[in-house]
């Protein structure tokens, strides 16, 4: 290890032992009480009546429909937001146009609006009493209290995740490689597939993972538009709520444990990708500095 390369080894920035201890104690106990304990309790509660009850709760028809619906919604929302996200980030970082700042603000809108409001907005637009409600009803198209509404609400809530992940990355990478590709004769598609996407693939995957986690776990917006029709418009989080309200704790926690497992899996993949991202971004500036040697 290089001398003084670690923060705590540097005498000027070293804190007294008790400060270090206190900070460690505070953060670890917070982590233990508010994150680890609830997580353990989810699995403990889910299994406290034994594996049989657990499996029965999961393989109950309504539960299976909920799992299927959550996966379907994610399967529709994530690819769509992948395309939207890449398109938005590409437009924002590779081109200059007039209303760019407005577009960036709009992309952030779902983050700043409460999910419940987001759901309500869709009810007001597509609901029976909404602006488009009558027209839709005449054509026998059901959006609110049906799967399309759930997909729309999920799309809205997860919209910024991919774009937000890509914009800083693509901004840092600049436009030169795309320009070089164009000068060499590549058309737009070739540039996208051969230059841009390979450069952003890890960032993109990271955004997709986040998007997927949110799509499966979203409660507020989906709750407003779904109508809680058991065995039809219930996603996993909604099903958990219903079971819980019916004092069926074992089943509720069994379903919750599935979400928790998905979250843990997401976290593992995310950590792996982050590690890859760091490798990629670190290798670059280092070699820029180190390589001004004279051999030609």
């Amino acid at each position: 290890m290089k001398r003084a390369s670690r923060f705590e080894k540097n005498a000027a920035t070293r804190e007294p032992r008790w400060v270090k201890g206190l900070l460690l104690f505070l953060s670890l106990s917070f982590f233990g009480f508010f994150l680890l304990l609830p997580l353990i309790s989810v699995f403990a509660q889910a299994l406290h009546k034994g594996w049989e009850v657990y499996l029965k709760a999961i393989f109950e028809p309504d539960a299976l429909t909920a799992i299927k619906l959550s996966l379907t919604v994610a399967l529709i929302a994530v690819p769509l937001n992948l395309v939207f996200g890449v398109a938005a980030a590409w437009a924002i970082t590779k081109f200059d146009f007039k209303w760019k700042q407005l577009l960036i603000t709009l992309i952030d809108l779902p983050f700043s609006v409460s999910p419940v409001i987001a759901g309500l907005v869709y009810v007001l637009v597509f609901g029976a009493q909404g602006w488009l409600g009558r027209g839709l009803a005449e054509h026998n198209i059901k959006i609110i209290f049906a799967v399309p509404g759930i997909v729309l609400a999920t799309l809205f809530v997860t919209f910024p995740l991919v774009a937000r992940e890509l914009i800083p990355l693509m901004e840092a990478q600049g436009r030169e490689e795309e320009e070089a590709a164009t000068v060499l004769g590549a058309n737009g598609w070739q540039t996208l597939w051969k230059v841009t996407l390979p450069n952003i693939k890890w960032g993109l995957l990271y955004g997709v993972i986040l998007c997927n986690a949110r799509a499966m776990g979203e409660f507020g917006a989906v709750s407003v538009v779904s109508g809680h029709i058991r065995g039809y418009t219930n996603t996993i989080p909604l099903h958990v709520e219903i079971l819980y309200n019916e004092y069926n704790f074992a089943a509720a926690f069994a379903m919750a444990s599935i979400l928790a497992l998905l979250a843990l899996l997401t976290l593992a993949i995310k950590t792996y990708i982050e590690w890859h991202l760091r490798l990629e971004t670190e290798s670059k500036p280092l070699s820029m500095e180190a390589n001004n040697e004279t051999d030609l």
Binding site: E176, E177, T182, V183, A186, K194, V195, P198
Partner: peptide, 19 residues
């Protein structure tokens, strides 16, 4: 279009395709 101009362009920061 740039593509059809048959020019070679060398950038200050190389712009090599890093992958």
């Amino acid at each position: 279009h740039v593509r059809e101009r048959q020019v070679g362009f060398v950038f200050q920061h190389y712009a090599l395709f890093r992958h």
